[in-house]
Design a protein around this nucleic acid. Sequence first.
RNA 1: GGGCGUAUAGCUCAGCGGGAGAGCGCCUCGUUGACAUCGAGGAGGUCCCUGGUUCAAUCCCAGGUACGCCCACCA
Length: 894
Amino acid sequence: MLDKTYRPQEVEDRQYARWEEAKAFAAQFDETKKPFTIMIPPPNVTGSLHIGHALNNTIQDILVRYQRMQGRDVLWQPGTDHAGIATQMVVERQLGAKGIELDRGMPLAPGNSQQIGREEFIKRVWEWREESGGIILKQLRRLGASCDWSRERFTMDEGLSEAVLKVFVTLYRKKLIYRDKRLVNWDPRFHTAISDLEVEQKEINGHLWHFKYPIEGEEGRFITVATTRPETMLGDTAVAVHPEDERYRDLVGKHAILPLVGRRIVIVADDYADPEQGSGAVKITPAHDFNDFEVGKRHGLEMINVFDRDAHLSDSVPEAYRGLERFEARRRIVADMEAEGLLEKIDDHRHTVPHGDRSGVPIEPYLTDQWYVDAATLAKPAIEAVESGRTVFVPKQWERTYYEWMRNIQPWCISRQLWWGHQIPAWYGPDGEVFVAHDEGEAAKAAEAHYGKPVDLTRDTDVLDTWFSSALWPFSTLGWPENTKALKRYYPGDVLVTSFDIIFFWVARMMMSGLEFMDGEVPFHTVYIHALVRDEKGQKMSKSKGNVVDPLELIDKFGADAVRFTLTALAAQGRDIKLAESRIEGYRNFCTKIWNAARFCEMNDCAYGADFDPADNRQRVNRWIVSQAAQVEPKVRQAIESYRFNEAAQAIYQFVWHTYCDWYLEFAKPLFQGDDEAAKAETRATALWVLHKALFLAHPIMPFLTEELWLQTGNGEKELMTTAAWPGFPEALVDAEADAALNWVVRMIGQIRAVRSEMNVPPGARIALIVNEASDISKARVGDHQALIQTLARVETIAFDQPVPDGSVQDVLEEATLVLPLADVIDIGQEQARLKKEMDKLKGEIGKLDKKLSNDQFLAKAPAEVVAEQRERLADSQQTMDKLQTALERLGGV
RNA sequence: GGGCGUAUAGCUCAGCGGGAGAGCGCCUCGUUGACAUCGAGGAGGUCCCUGGUUCAAUCCCAGGUACGCCCACCA
């Protein structure tokens, strides 16, 4: 017996356990089936499930569950990412709470009691990961994700690390990885370089300081420069002016004296200086600004690094400023310049400042040695693969974004000065010679060959950008570089499901590495880009705004299926999702509705029978509902296959609630209560059969509820729905005659109800329905379904072949139908107004059609069927108009 | 500065070269023997503006306005 209400939580736990027990999600390596592969975007090992994950994984789960039911050999590969900076940050913070800090060669900070080295730190991170890492994968189970958990991978696993080594060494030997000294985005909080993508621009209200630099040898003459960052002036090595700027032409080649420092700096002519901006002269700090760096290279300027790793002033500045924190230095320098009378003015200035996306502190352009990937070279085949359609984006417009970025791609800085991550396999000889090798032994051999004798090597201390290993995910998880069975069977992937914000971080880089290392084979054929989930007001969810919706709380409150269904129903292509709780509530109600439909079947003794064949049905209502179901199936199938998940959800919702529950079950009631045992048996079987088919169609979206009902009312004991076959509906089950007849009845009952409602017919009133003798079809249909109509429309009697009584307003109803309220309750005035309004509307319509149909060009150029259709519509409208006119006259109107 | 997207009912959003749609909310009526987490019906719209293409534009094109996002730059 089904419980009185659906209790999601208990059902979800039980059903998930059954699936796991049956190993229902395991990749099968079944050669008789076609493989279907999806690689999960590995969540950060530190992460917990947010609503974006919920959407992302719901969509993936729908795809894999659907394909599994289609008989594909599905691999949904799960795992987590070691998330270099994010994880190091989390663990550092936890250690910090215990007074432990990392030994960075600095004195122990006040309040802390212990410093630990690299090895110890990494040990602690692993310990942390054992304890609390990967919570998110457990949370994915609550959502219902059907990953092959036996194949779970972690980017720091041995195998995946082996892949990283192999890729690094190979790319290095191909000169696609190299070491270079250039400006990088330096995060002073984490003491590491970060890539361009990890920089976030924030608008702030700042100032523009105008400084006067004295000209050497010309007493009293100054050149004014403006800056948003006064502290960098200590590293100035030039002032640039535009070559055609008349104001400064005579100064080019001369020198200015850098205040506070006393250094002679040259005045150069360079197009970079914009005469329109500020004073037209710009200070050049090659070691701390990306543009200035380029200018410096062009003019062979000295590059003076004024900061240390913490962005404190270094020993390269005058003693008074050494060791100052950068913002303190700014205040001091402005004050000193003012004291010297060299501060011309301060303007307010709104500008953007780059911040580290993890640390949140302003980043410093900083001159260091780093490792780079020659992304431009790797991008070429990755661009070609999309151009040629070997990988397609859905929706297609994202291809533009992809091209845009790929065609302007910059060298990818992959080294990070962190401890947590894949350490770079590079060793340095005594003179700094680099040896990149798989391991230390190999490096030593190479070094010995180079120097002619064994030497001591020191290993590069940097680790790789976390995305370096993520980029290999589509094949490293399958065992590459070993040539495994899994690799052969499940590469390339079919679909990658992700949101647009990691197209650059991840998708682009997987494309590059996949093509490079898998013999030019793309890592996936389709990239499905889904929406971003925003809050009710359309704002991005963020912890600081406090508008974060926790999917686990929603699951607790409404059930996983309701949450999944909501996300699916809202996941239209090309638009962000605004998530309102009222929406989830609505779909929770849908879950309840399904549950109650099953209860209704159960109460009417419907029983599952494996050999039931609806093709043998005799009752028209039963043939009708089967036909309706058969027409829903292709809608759902096509919607899922074309990634229009919201349409699939809508089709299911509409069918189950409004067709099956609202109409069919009502139709079935008299049959259940009647004396015709054959009809009763047929209806029992059909009601349940159709319900089960609908459950199958809904299963990819709402797996828990459907599996539970299949277990309790179907064949779930013997066959899990999740591994069963997608329901087929033979063409023959579509019954046009039954469709036409019952759809007519549905419409008519609706109309009768409308009239009752509109005319305020009191509940007890007697109503007679008189069918015009002229309409054979209507007669037949009413005759066949007399009982249904009488019950559902609460019609007292139905009579045939009666003359149309004069004075009735109900001519407005469909051709052959009349509803006659025996109690005289019509509000004449109200009815007249309604009719007039309706006629006005029709008049406009008729006018439009009339004009169109008398337009020669329309008649000549429009397709014949369109013309015919319009004619028909005009005729219909005119006929209705006549009826309305008659009705109005009878009511005494004009 | 470059690119992308969006604009349709009170709200959230589908849709479409030929009759303007759904859910929620609102109003009316009904139903308490599957389900009040229910059913039937209704009101409500200049499909952002201007121009163009077309026999026909809410839809296609161009321009504009507003909002959102991405990239780059910012002395």
